[in-house]
Design a binder for these strands. Sequence first.
DNA 1: CCCTAGATTTACT
DNA 2: GTAAATCTAGGGC
Length: 186
Amino acid sequence: MIILPRAFYSRDTVTVAKSLIGKRIVRKIDKQEISGIIIETEAYRHKDDPASHAFRKITERNRVMFGEVGKAYVYFTYGMHYCFNVVARNSKFDAGAVLIRAISPENGINTMQKNRGVDSMKNLVNGPAKLTQALGITKEHYGVDLTEDSELFIVEGIKIHEKIIVSPRVGIKVAKEKMWNFKISI
DNA sequence: CCCTAGATTTACT
DNA sequence: GTAAATCTAGGGC
């Protein structure tokens, strides 16, 4: 099990978003290990991206997007949902993050089903707020370093044979022309 | 299958 | 004050 190094995240945000497809996200709760393969991501950048939380300026919520890469950016939205991002950017940008939109469950499926309150596989982790609920990710994980073996980190995953599908990002009202959504269908 | 509405808190304008 | 990187249930087809 090889944890992705900080250098992995020190590249252009869009490149990192694409590269994260097929990697494994690992969540340790007590002694149990829950994991899944990342199958959908989106890039959110800085000055050229009006849809990004970091578009205007640094604030209390988005400040981790301006900090060290490889850390978790967790935000709360719509009054009831958490979403999980990884901070990633190269030196050309002051901020950037990759939203994890969907995973494919591996270990701890029972726990995910319990956390979600559903037993269908199809509906388990196929959305950004669903996977945070299934993995028990909350604002407590804001700023967690994902390059260390702790309760939440990302490791090398599987080889991808499927073609990566490139689409416009989901759920935004501006900058829809940017094709920064990446996914595979398994 | 597709569509609509309601939930419910935060953070920024 | 209001929009928000969403999800679910319920109704109609």
